[in-house]
């Protein structure tokens, strides 16, 4: 219907929630690969507020965790957040519930790569800007690709 009318599909469709999503494959996979417990998160937002790259992300880190709790895999692996994340550990050291959010981000990148989702690679940085990219950022990019 949207196509017929020449419109974009709705950007915030309702989440049809049931027990296969909240306790489903995706959540379990994230928990298992990261060694973290997603449901420990009570959405205080400390990871987002302390994230030095939050302004570049389309979805804040705390909301990524929230979407993962509700089994929203597609939305997460298509976000730029998991690739913008520099694995700086700010979120992990701030989390009052002791969740290693960086490990969750790593896991989400892994899942995205497994799904063959497009990502940002070091070859896309032109030489002019490469010198300005902070070293940890560059290391992060390679790390993401090698995990």
């Amino acid at each position: 219907m949207y196509k017929k009318l020449g419109l974009d599909p709705p950007c915030s469709p309702p989440i049809l929630l049931d027990r296969t999503k909240v306790r489903g494959e995706f959540g379990l996979q994230v928990d298992e690969l990261s060694g973290q417990h997603l449901y420990a998160c009570y959405q205080c937002g400390n990871c987002s507020s302390g994230c030095p790259l939050a302004q570049e992300m389309d979805i804040l880190p705390s909301r990524i965790i929230r979407l993962a709790q509700l089994g929203q895999k597609e939305e997460i692996i298509r976000s730029n957040t998991i690739w913008i994340c520099a694995s700086c550990f700010q979120c992990t050291v701030r989390c009052p519930k002791g969740i290693d959010i960086q490990a969750v981000m790593d896991t989400l990148r892994q899942i995205a790569l497994d799904e063959g989702v497009d990502h940002f690679g070091p070859d896309q940085i032109d030489s002019k800007h490469a010198a300005e990219v902070p070293q940890p950022g560059l290391v992060g990019v390679y790390r993401k690709l090698s995990t």
């Binding site: 915030s12 469709p13 309702p14 989440i15 049809l16 929630l17 049931d18 959405q43 705390s62 909301r63 929230r66 979407l67 509700l70 929203q72």
Partner: peptide, 15 residues
């Protein structure tokens, strides 16, 4: 149930 989850910014529907 038609509700919302402001933490994801998405509406929630549960049968």
């Amino acid at each position: 149930v038609w509700g919302t989850d402001t933490l994801t910014g998405r509406n929630i529907e549960i049968a």
